[in-house]
Design a binder for these strands. Structure first.
Lengths: 256, 256
DNA sequence: CGATGAATTGACCGATGTCAAGTGGCGTGG
DNA sequence: CCACGCCACTTGACATCGGTCAATTCATCG
């Protein structure tokens, strides 16, 4: 049989990300092979736009390397970051379930490599592959959990707590451990962070600087180093009974 | 073969709700029959609690009649309504995906009838029934869409718009058309509404009364009648450029 | 008809968004 | 290699939405 070089490298990539991908969990070598045959490979530079809200759905993506930002623009122009996507994650699940336009935009934050599929083709394959359908169920279920959590946080927590939660989520996904420190070397703008935490870049700026003065983290334009994850978690869960004033990291901030 | 009376009535109920249930869409008579055999039937009175956050997962539910409220309590005691559930909806999808505790509470708002399944049993059946797994995928996908929308709304819209959206969602599900009016005869407390719109019962009270004075709706303790759905939608989508003052339904409200 | 819980209304105020005016680091082009 | 300009970020002043609490009023049910 004919086997294209593209499907060979696709197979190599699939094997490589399988351990870190819910999408590929439990698939047999045979199934990976079939997936690879209908996949294509592509590379994106940083800052590229992959697709925009409202565009007709062209592809289902599996991220192999890099970081993507999934966002929406509100009618008033404000930007909301629904999620960040990392290697092993999929983007555009809705496409295989019959949705014909993208309900959000995807932008490349760190140079990326992806496999992508033609939705109807993948959809057909999924229907024959019980494992794959099940995996998609689990992915959606997990995403739903996360959104419920973030919805509740947005509704009940103050900006500082939400920012802490946002940072924790980020650190868990792309923080590189180095002794007691966690390093994020993907340059995420304050605006992106704000859109993720549900606030404005002004407020984020104030909070991060306050935390920096308090020794919770260090940062510059392209690096963010969390020095005290425990304190961050304390702030995030600060279950103060009521409109409390004793803010953990505010102690010793600016005099007035 | 032996067929219990319970599984017979379960089958009758399954046939009845099938047209309005995403969960049962496309299932064959044979499959419905098998589902019925492993199902149980139960009735709940209004105000009953079905399960609480954190309880071990006992059942997967399919609502046949009535209305349920799915909620969480925030650490500070505030109540959040994640969703209302109506006939044809399922509750506790996470249980068949291996989750062992309920991440939310379910309470009965209007007297209800449900079919329920033992999660591992249903899980096994689902794995053999591609259609069912696919349906669950679509349900989860839709729920995810809704939460993304509500997340964005919570982040970008003011309370009046969010309240409008909440009311629209309610009316679409349980509004009974009567001429130009839409009647909601399920008594939903202001507190429940507040938890659904992401605000407090005080603010909800003020907004509903303002709308009532503006002729958008009428209400009493147990009935809510939307008289002008179009206006409601206008308020919900009010895409005013910036902190605008010309609020649609505020015109002609209280003198001060 | 009284008790109970739900809803109303007012007064207050604080967290956080908005806007304006810097500041500084980085990359590009001369 | 330096200088310029740009863009991301910072910081302050201010306004305001909507949450909090307290005091009533209202309906419904026994």
């Amino acid at each position: 049989v004919l086997v294209s070089t593209e499907s060979i490298s696709a197979l190599v990539e699939l094997r490589r990300v399988q351990p870190s991908s819910m999408f590929l969990r439990g698939l047999s070598g045979q199934e990976l092979h079939q997936l690879a045959e209908i996949a294509s490979l592509k590379v994106y530079p940083a800052r590229a736009n992959v697709f925009q809200t409202g565009e007709p759905t062209k592809h289902f993506h599996l991220l192999l390397a890099g970081v993507w930002k999934i966002s929406q623009e509100a009618p008033n122009g404000q930007f909301i970051n629904l999620a960040f996507r990392f290697p092993g994650h999929v983007v555009g699940v809705h496409s295989v379930l019959g949705s014909t336009t993208y309900p959000f935009s995807a932008d490349v934050i760190a140079p990326s490599k992806v496999l992508f599929w033609h939705p109807p083709t993948l959809s057909t394959f999924m229907r024959q592959t019980a494992n794959l359908t099940w995996n998609v169920c689990e992915i959606l279920n997990l995403a739903l959990y996360e959104f419920c959590d973030r919805y509740r946080e947005l509704m009940t927590e103050n900006v500082e707590q939400r920012t802490a939660h946002a940072l924790i989520r980020l650190v868990e996904q792309l923080g590189k451990r180095k002794g007691p420190e966690l390093i994020i070397d993907t340059p995420i703008s304050l605006e992106d962070l704000a859109g993720y935490a549900g606030t404005t870049l002004f407020t984020i700026s104030r909070i991060l600087n306050r935390w920096q003065r308090g020794g919770l983290l260090r940062k510059n334009r392209r690096l963010l180093i969390v020095e005290d994850l425990e304190l961050l978690k304390t702030i995030a869960d600060a279950t103060y009974a009521r409109p409390d004033t004793a803010r953990v990291a505010s102690a010793g901030s600016r005099p007035r």
